[in-house]
Computed example of a mutant assay.
Amino acid sequence: MSDLLGVAVLGAGHMGADHIRRIDQSISGARIVAAADPDAGRVEAAAAGIRGASLHTDPLAALDVPGVEAVLIASPGPSHEEALLAAFERGLPVLCEKPMTPDTAGALRVMAAEAKVGRRLVQVGFMRRYDAEYLRLKALLDAGRLGRVLMLHCTHRNVSSPAGFTSAMMIDSSVSHEIDASRWLLGQEITAVSVLRPQPSSGAPEGLLDPQLVLFETSGGAVVDVEIFVNCGFGYQVRCEAVGETGSARIGDARTMVVETEGSTREEIPQDYLVRFVDAYDREVQAWVDAARKGIVTGPSAWDGYATAAVAQAGVRAQRDGARVAVHLEERPALYC
């Protein structure tokens, strides 16, 4: 492996373009060798100014560029499985943005293919595990400072939803972050999902069931509630409170800039996840690069991608049918134990 890890980035949309910038400007130990997006103009704009980067509209062509030693997948979810399997065939480590795959069938195929290789190649992009506040909360819970955790209260709000965003995507795209964060914080699997749907907000696009309250039951007897509100209109907010037998702890209230002027005080609210979690994304990608240069893969695994897909799939059914839905997980393969 060269002094700088040669990375191919697949996808040059909002997330992919930010990762291209991050690798080129913000982290150490890596360089952009290739980038791909079906929209030639978009990938050219995202990689503008990066000398020597090979640009493609075919993602698989980018994997075969000389000097590519690792792959970052930031394309839409339905394209992830093909890219992952192609990376496995080439023995390339991968950082794959969530969802790893849109459904459990695809996730099982990815795990089977990785098992054939015989070693982990995938880190799934659940970046909240790299956020400073989440890391502090995880350390507090692991140390038993709150006793046994009984409940997690989570809030996930966006200013507005993008065009074409569906009610199902509120679970399998947005709440997928809370699914993984809950599993990670508690060290437990989610065993059942229920979804409550209040009257939609007047700010929600027609047909979108927004907001929703999602309830998880876990293997350790905890309960998690998630308020998902993707058209709140005022800002991007992510909060989590853990309630234990001997105390509670809350994250997500960290202060941003406070402006005091003309007899009033105004606190800024982030308008975008790339602003709120910029440090987490930097830590996540840096950790992936550092591990890949050592020939290893760390962080959330393909099993975590599969478990999140299984919970999300149950959540979409619960949302549709208005009933509690049990989560079925296959036996965890030895590779992920």
Rank of each mutant, 00 (worst) to 15 (best):
H156A: 08
V9S: 09
Y130M: 05
D142T: 12
L137A: 04
G221P: 05
V71C: 09
D272M: 03
L150C: 04
A112E: 14
E178K: 11
M100Y: 02
V259G: 03
I50E: 01
V316M: 02
Q319S: 12
I73L: 14
G305Q: 03
R320A: 14
V159Q: 08
R22N: 01
V110D: 03
T298A: 07
P270W: 01
I296V: 15
A48T: 09
H153A: 11
Y336N: 03
A47F: 12
A287I: 07
D3F: 02
R51W: 08
R148Y: 04
S182G: 02
A74L: 11
P270R: 06
L85P: 01
R22D: 06
R197N: 04
S75V: 09
Q25A: 11
L140H: 14
S264F: 15
D18I: 01
G11K: 00
A307I: 04
R22C: 08
A312V: 02
S173I: 03
D18C: 09
E178Y: 07
T166N: 09
L140C: 12
L335K: 05
A280W: 02
L196M: 06
P38Y: 13
R317N: 02
A105C: 04
A115H: 11
P200H: 07
S160M: 06
I179M: 10
S201K: 13
E178F: 04
V71K: 08
A323T: 15
E330Y: 11
R120K: 13
M1W: 07
V325G: 05
V275D: 11
D24P: 06
G203M: 15
P78R: 14
E97S: 07
V65F: 09
A105D: 12
E82H: 12
V223S: 13
